[in-house]
Design a protein around this nucleic acid. Sequence first.
DNA 1: TTTAGCACTCGACGATGATGAGTGCTAACA
DNA 2: TGTTAGCACTCATCATCGTCGAGTGCTAAA
Lengths: 342, 342
Amino acid sequence: MDERKQKVLRAIIMDYISTADPVGSRTIAKKYNLGVSSATIRNEMADLEEMGLIEQPHTSSGRVPSDKGYRYYVDHLMDEDDLVGGEKDIIRAFFTDRFNRLDQLYHETCKVLSELSPYVTMIMTPVKSSGTLEQLQLIPVSPFQAVLVLVTDVGLVHHRTVDFPVPVSEERLKEVGQILFKRLKGRNIDDVNITLMREISGELKEELDIVDSVFEMMSDAVKSSGEEKVFLEGTLNILNQPEFNDVKKVKEVLSFLQDEKILRELLHGKNGIGMNFSIGDELSHDEINRCSMITCTYSINGNTMGNIGILGPTRMEYARSASLIKEVAKELSNVLDHNEKK
Amino acid sequence: MDERKQKVLRAIIMDYISTADPVGSRTIAKKYNLGVSSATIRNEMADLEEMGLIEQPHTSSGRVPSDKGYRYYVDHLMDEDDLVGGEKDIIRAFFTDRFNRLDQLYHETCKVLSELSPYVTMIMTPVKSSGTLEQLQLIPVSPFQAVLVLVTDVGLVHHRTVDFPVPVSEERLKEVGQILFKRLKGRNIDDVNITLMREISGELKEELDIVDSVFEMMSDAVKSSGEEKVFLEGTLNILNQPEFNDVKKVKEVLSFLQDEKILRELLHGKNGIGMNFSIGDELSHDEINRCSMITCTYSINGNTMGNIGILGPTRMEYARSASLIKEVAKELSNVLDHNEKK
DNA sequence: TTTAGCACTCGACGATGATGAGTGCTAACA
DNA sequence: TGTTAGCACTCATCATCGTCGAGTGCTAAA
């Protein structure tokens, strides 16, 4: 793979990324002055095609990068595309705002990213919040109802309404709450399971009816906190991409993205740390085999916590999107660090 | 408007609703045996067109109902379309499930509706929850952080993380929480404003730094609870409708529906009680002037609380959708009643 | 090794004509 | 007087066909 071939490949990919039209030898000779004529470039292109890096949709049309071509580009040719100054400012400014709730922070972050890029963006909240229980409180509402509030050490708050089969006085409720708290404080939140429940129930025999109801809601809260939540934005962005000018394709991809389980899977991907590119078939889902995805991990105090992702057509702006996602991941980690320290 | 004209109009609308093709005189003569020939029907159709109830996309094509035609149909011709037995069962069964959280209930309800109808569905949570404060609690997390929990009498629970500028001991926090609760208990949640805050601040002079932070979060919670939240589902359903086989239209409508303020407006609509039909231009938004919307109010203990809506092309199944929405509203009201009584 | 020249391919686009669904009108009929 | 059969007419749809042009591969000369 000599240098000129690389230059030609890069030129093809960059042109195709910005125009979405198959690119011909003449275009390259004119727009990207490589100092050789279109005929020479044609020869190079024939070679590149033989190597499987580019393809011809049909005889006598320009060339289009193949998945393999994009992969080569991402691995070897791509410049670090520094964002326009203004964009970095937007991201910074965004993260100096205060967020009252954690889910709001994720949601808004995802949204900002979707406004800065013309693709679908997603953020997955921390993996299996391996948090410990910091607080547990039962707040009386009526004789038959109370609100259960759980706080974990990573600052997550859950609440559930608990219904009791029998009336419960405020005093009794308070007592039970305190006992439960004492027993559960500092424990890993995943430990809230049947075994533990049995154990505690034994101790609280008289209050069995209350404890049962509370435990039910507690495990419900734990279950939903255990699952990583995925925020999705910018789904309509892809309607602007020429590869989605067919309603059938739009439907296929958008329906596919409706399933949160799928999104989690996509974001987990190769769960290495840092940036990750998956191109076309590498995503191994037929529904999005004409798409690529860039993911990046973010962290709290250095511990990898979750993933941010951008999904676009294989013809996406890899360099720009990567810089974008990296910047956002950095700033998000920053904010979460601060939040944690307090 | 004699009876035969009505029959013809109804036939045209029903046929168009199910086929989406302009319907001709011959089709009607054959499929809906009105006992007259196509020529006669042609004459009737000419009259109906003169009355503005149907239209011809171009000379020599079949007729298509106009907005006015649909309006006449909805007002005078529509049968109460009883749902297929199975569907009612599905709805019933759905509502016998238990829901741990109120927002989950709304969300799932919206989803069920979107699965039973091929259109976009939405549910708006209670209008300006004019609830009173039932509970207020400050749960310590760290010296600089606490969780504020608010419970209103309609069973809504809000929580916010409060940051303090100075360390606060658990005892002080408890004290402040109790004083605040005493002062605010039973008050309308909208009353939490600056005046009241001043009043209470005066009383709690020593704890000003704490109270300030708490109030900030409180008004944030109140603000977000004051706004009616809208749940939206089935947006992808419309991709199956032939009127949306053009990506441009899809984009226009879907982008339009992204704005929650717009959705609130649509659902408020003519805020009478019960069922409401808005057809085409009656929605007074150009982006959806080829759509119709059916809304229905639901209630808690007889007090009208919020709205459920179905949005589809003007060629939507009015009767079926209306029955569907009515049934769901009934069952939802039912569940909410029960929830309230406890 | 590079380049100019040339024949060739093939999708896009516009014009053309056939097809058929559907209409309005008229005249005959009950 | 209302209904119907017949007929001429309209117009969207669709397939066909030729043109155009972008782009290629190959060859021969520089």
